[in-house]
Each structure stands twice: as structure tokens, then as C-alpha cells.
């Protein structure tokens, strides 16, 4: 019984948003909706684990989305909305860290490794390169052997 009371108490969380202006968007401007959604995907829902404000079904996220909508309708730019949330919650709220200072390490790590790898491969191939010209012409006997080998290869697979 006590369990059920707890359950009922927690369920109030759901109905809670009833006090909230519903996110009625049938009349909303699709361009605004698109911007709201794009911004909401960049923000981390504070009460969830690794979900964005756009994806989370929590009341908090619903309220945040309506706040973003309001700000955009008032003419705020993306940067203004973003910095508003950063000011309140810290950089933590951004799902993609700002490209500045120490964070450049995050953004550049992958591309640097890829480039270094490409350079490495070029050198490795160059060092192991053997000109194809020094292969002697193939005799008739070898050609027959190759033909036979080829047949076997077809059986082998790969």
C-alpha cells in the first residue's frame, strides 16, 4: 500500500505540466518551430541523463522548449538563447562544447589524427614501394601455372 502511495505521489509529476501552457503548435509558425527544435537539440536536458531538451519528455524540457519559443518569437537570436542558458546552467548545458581554449583539443583531435595517419600511410607505402617494371616477362609455362592457380583461387574464396 505504501508503495502505491509513493507511486501515486510520483505520478503527480506527469500531470504537473497541466499547469503549463500546453505546447500547442498547430497554429505556430513552422519556421519558428524549426529554430526552436534546432536549438533544443543543442541543449542538454538538466533532469535527464544525456538527452537533449528536444528529445526529453520531462516537464523541465517542455518548459525549456516553451521558453525558447517565447524568446525566438520575441526576436532573440540563436546565440542569445544559447548564452542565456549557459549563463544559468554553465557550459555543461551545451551538448557540443564551445570551440574555444582547451576545448579545441576535443574538436581538433580527430582531424589531426586522420591527417597524421594519411601522411603516415603515404610514407609507409613509399618505403615499401617496389617498381613493377623489374618483373621478367612471363613464360608460357608460367602462364599455364597461373591459370591453374587462378582456378584454385576461385575455389578458395575471398
Amino acid at each position: 500500500m505504501k508503495r502505491l502511495i509513493r507511486a501515486a505521489a510520483a505520478f503527480a509529476l506527469l500531470g504537473a505540466a497541466s499547469g503549463v501552457r500546453s505546447e500547442e503548435s498547430s497554429a505556430a509558425d513552422p519556421a519558428v518551430e524549426k529554430r526552436v527544435r534546432a536549438l533544443a537539440t543543442e541543449l542538454r536536458c538538466p533532469v535527464c541523463q544525456n538527452l537533449s531538451v528536444a528529445d526529453s519528455p520531462s516537464t523541465m524540457a517542455v518548459q525549456m522548449r516553451s521558453l525558447i519559443r517565447e524568446e525566438i518569437e520575441k526576436g532573440a537570436t540563436e546565440d542569445q538563447v544559447r548564452s542565456f542558458f549557459v549563463q544559468k546552467y554553465g557550459e555543461w548545458i551545451l551538448l557540443a562544447p564551445l570551440k574555444s581554449g582547451f576545448n579545441w583539443l576535443l574538436w581538433l583531435g580527430g582531424p589531426v589524427l586522420l591527417l597524421a595517419g594519411l601522411v603516415g600511410i603515404v610514407f609507409w607505402v613509399a618505403r615499401r614501394r617496389r617498381p613493377i617494371e623489374d618483373v621478367p616477362p612471363v613464360s608460357a609455362e608460367t602462364a599455364a601455372r597461373i591459370e591453374k592457380a587462378l582456378k584454385e583461387r576461385l575455389e578458395d574464396g575471398a
Binding site: 501552457r21 538538466p46 523541465m60 518548459q63 525549456m64 516553451s66 521558453l67 542558458f85 544559468k88
Partner: peptide, 12 residues
Amino acid sequence: EGKTAIDFGVYG
């Protein structure tokens, strides 16, 4: 509407 909560950066 949760505005004050967001203003204070409330998580839960």
C-alpha cells in the same frame, strides 16, 4: 511555467 526555475538554473 518554470521560468524562475530556469532563471536560477535549477536541475530538479
